[in-house]
Simulated scan of single mutants.
Amino acid sequence: MIPFNKPYSTGLELTYISDALSTGKISGNGKYTKKCQDFFETKYGFKKTLLTTSCTDALEMAALLIGIEPGDEVIMPSYTFVSTANAFALRGAKIVFADSRPDHPGIFEESIELLITKNTKAIVPVHYAGVACDMDVIMDIANRHNLYVIEDAAQAIDSFYIGKDGIKRALGSIGHLSCFSFHETKNIISGEGGMLVINHEPFLRRAEIIWEKGTDRAAFFRGEVDKYGWVDIGSSFLPSEIIAAFLFAQLENLEKIQKRRLYLWEMYYQNLEEYSLLTKIRLPKIPNFATNNAHMFYLVCKNVDQRTKIIEALKNEGILAVFHYVSLHSSKYFGTKHDGRKLMNTDNYSDCLLRLPMYYELSDLEVLKITEIIKKVK
């Protein structure tokens, strides 16, 4: 049996969890929370980071920070996880779905400006598979129309955008806000968990208040105020120190984990490159402005039937390969709310994209077995 995903343990998780227990503080915003946040701020140049219980929570914090209200419009790709939309729909926003790129499931940047109205408040690009959207284009549009940009970087840890100026910037460091996931299916995990990145100076203080249930509790513990109280809206977004301790063990092994995943990704690509040309199956494309963090390896099949045949061929050998999102614009909940535009690329990815097993402990022989089975399907 080869599963689609297998969570990886570095061996230090239990050691750090035990250490967190010994501190007598496991409720959050303690020793390991600070270690994780310092790691990200130092390594990637994020202005401020706040660990959250999930990427969903980070997105909901972002919606609160930019002041989403009923009637506001938020532009995002339809080919994404429901949390991307839910965070803003919960605040009453109208979600305006954009199509995907023809060559990649990320948002089709050229379509964004046509969707902007006087009610548009934000653009939410999703860095699908850890591959950057064209952030120069998106930030230019946002700046000209006075819009916020919130990067959904759930899959994008340790991935970068190469700007027109030649400067390489970490994904998550470019928009006003960004959101990461440490769900067990991601490169770096804590079971459940996420992070909000604040790059926009005016949001720094309020983000911490929202994070701390609408109180200035964090400032109190730093000795900046003599008591704390309810000063804004907020919720319980902090993860426990147990989650943070687990995550820190992963972060210490980031380079090792990434090296292995990139090796496996390249092995998939090399083994399937010739086959893809013969069968018209598309392999992942990395645009020249993006880097690859090997979050996933996927195929884009010619049609649903071809994808089904590959899934069945793998399943018969005990290998689990899975498709991904159903287009949100055509979902049971949103279908009647959509404005009727055809999002052809999005629907094509929903019908034809197939994700192959990808995890640290996947062996070379297992990748070889997977690719050999796929190559027998015509």
Rank of each mutant, 00 (worst) to 15 (best):
T346P: 03
M344H: 13
T336Y: 08
R261H: 10
K337I: 10
V322A: 09
C352I: 07
S350D: 07
E266H: 13
Y269G: 05
S331A: 05
T308L: 08
M296Q: 10
N303Q: 03
V326P: 10
Y298V: 08
Y349V: 08
M267D: 12
K315M: 00
W265R: 09
N345C: 02
A313I: 04
L314W: 06
Y268Q: 10
C301N: 00
A294K: 04
N348R: 09
M344I: 13
I311W: 00
I311A: 04
N271M: 09
T336M: 05
Y349F: 14
K337D: 09
M267K: 14
F323C: 11
L283H: 12
A290D: 09
R282I: 01
A321Q: 07
L354D: 03
L354G: 10
H295W: 11
S350C: 03
I281A: 10
C301Q: 00
L277N: 13
D339I: 07
R282F: 03
I310M: 08
E312G: 03
H295Y: 14
C301L: 03
Y349L: 01
I286G: 00
H338E: 06
L299W: 05
P287E: 02
G340K: 05
L320Q: 06
A313S: 13
Y298I: 00
H338L: 00
K309F: 09
M296L: 01
T279E: 02
H329L: 04
N316W: 03
L283E: 13
K280Q: 06
G340S: 07
I310S: 01
L353H: 10
L328I: 02
T346G: 03
L299F: 13
P287S: 02
N348I: 05
K309N: 13
D347N: 14
P357E: 10
G340N: 01
A290E: 00
S330V: 13
Y298E: 10
V300A: 07
D305P: 01
V304A: 14
L353W: 05
S327Q: 00
K302Y: 00
V322H: 04
Y333S: 10
P284D: 09
N293T: 02
V304C: 08
K285N: 12
V300S: 09
R260H: 05
L278E: 15
P357R: 07
L314T: 01
N303S: 12
N288H: 11
P287M: 04
K309I: 04
I311C: 01
A294I: 06
A294Q: 09
H324R: 14
Q306K: 14
R261K: 15
F334C: 06
K342Y: 12
P357S: 05
R307W: 02
N348E: 12
N348K: 11
Y263L: 13
I310F: 01
L356R: 02
G340M: 09
L272T: 00
A290C: 03
I286D: 05
L283Y: 15
L262I: 06
I311M: 11
I319A: 02
M267C: 11
